[in-house]
Nucleic acid binder design. Sequence first.
DNA 1: CGGGGCGTTGACTGAGATCAATTATGGTGG
DNA 2: CCACCATAATTGATCTCAGTCAACGCCCCG
Lengths: 257, 257
Amino acid sequence: MAAPNDNPLIRKLAYLHPLSDLERELLDKACSRIVRVGPDQDLINEGDRPTECNLLLEGMTCRYKILSEGKRQIFSFHVPGDIYDAQSFVMEVMDHSVATLTPCTIAVIPHTTMVTITEEHPRLARAVWKDTLVDASIFREWMASIGRRSAYQRLAHLMCEIHARLDAVGLATGGRIDWPITQSEIGDALGLSLVHVNRTLQELRGAGLITLKESKLVILDLPGLKTAGDFDPQYLHMKARRSISDRTGDASEPRER
Amino acid sequence: MAAPNDNPLIRKLAYLHPLSDLERELLDKACSRIVRVGPDQDLINEGDRPTECNLLLEGMTCRYKILSEGKRQIFSFHVPGDIYDAQSFVMEVMDHSVATLTPCTIAVIPHTTMVTITEEHPRLARAVWKDTLVDASIFREWMASIGRRSAYQRLAHLMCEIHARLDAVGLATGGRIDWPITQSEIGDALGLSLVHVNRTLQELRGAGLITLKESKLVILDLPGLKTAGDFDPQYLHMKARRSISDRTGDASEPRER
DNA sequence: CGGGGCGTTGACTGAGATCAATTATGGTGG
DNA sequence: CCACCATAATTGATCTCAGTCAACGCCCCG
């Protein structure tokens, strides 16, 4: 966890916004404490007043809220490089919760450090701000999915998104990605019942677009899946055209898991 | 449009985040050019690369996206005091459009001004940042509505939200607010068909919760409507308990349309 | 080897969509 | 002041996608 380019946050922010060496170093130093957490653990709860931000280094988390009547809505899934609670740095009280889906490795950044860094380095503040705005853009796209797309489209769209985001941090091997999300969680994310998710998944399999078993999703036909999901990655605001896995000169050592 | 406290943005930001007199003055100066626009006009389109931000002073606007198949999803409605395109200052390309619902008065703030102000006044930057995060929180709540609430709950929830936000800038007279939103627009915001919106509105009327005609919404039973809509205003991150309309010293002239 | 989590399947139900008119309503021009 | 037109609201009939209920199988783990 030492060399700046190892840090997936830096990789991602640099992707959104150019960073100087000084800025990279600052960011890297900010991540002092590293924590490991098991699966299905709450990291933050609605109503909390956090004093630190968390950067996901490994694993997957989700944000959610429990409504009255016990229904759950999942707002987003998070991949390495995401500060899934950046908002806590600006807003006092959490209006939703965050939980792990898998075992996770998390870097902790005290708010005090965030304040110092962002007040002294406005460009860095903008980079983090931009990251929170990309979040908001993703929320909007999900809203559009839930509000106006069919179950089949929603599933396909979600898969394309997760694939694109994992690919951006080098965690997609071709169309193959980790998929630790249960059908019940997919349902709560997409506003569907678990039964209907199951049936829709089978449609996607039947159409030859995907394979999904043992928490591994293989996208057999990415263009087909994008079409099926009405997926246009513009809302993710990723600049580069080539996926990170294409770049050979980048010298971030390819690490196997 | 001269005296700082006339500016609904300053009123709202101060509401979120304490501001110094210097900061208030800076913000007020930033709003140089004032524009008037008619109803049902696009202000910004998906794909645009704006060079200025817009502060809504009067009227109501919405953000939306047209999906393939021509379906529309409305992401939010905006009331005076909202910088409905603050994100354009940080992200180059618009991923959605903005349109007026009513005739609007808008203050234009060049990005260059925004950059100067926010880089020199990090606290102001945080105030605007916070505003964009409240936006994101609202998106999440809408997502929860569309994904997990019934049509009846969604309608009630939306009405409570618009009421709360208008009240926060002094534009609610008791339970009475302007409601320039057509049933078709409600449908596109809440993921419902226009026909079903109509029927659900009649249920709300029948339950004695509201009255709605001639673009005026009267909430007859606010606690009842909140219960019906599962509405908890925490997600709006408003600090004050009292509504602005309670404050008598504020002297914002009651203006008829 | 028993139990809990996850996935799968079938049968039935229902909230909300769609289709198709019909009726206000609010301008607009004569 | 009134005819006219477009937009918005309303209503009825029908259909369908997705939810609910209820089993059952699989697999991992204690």
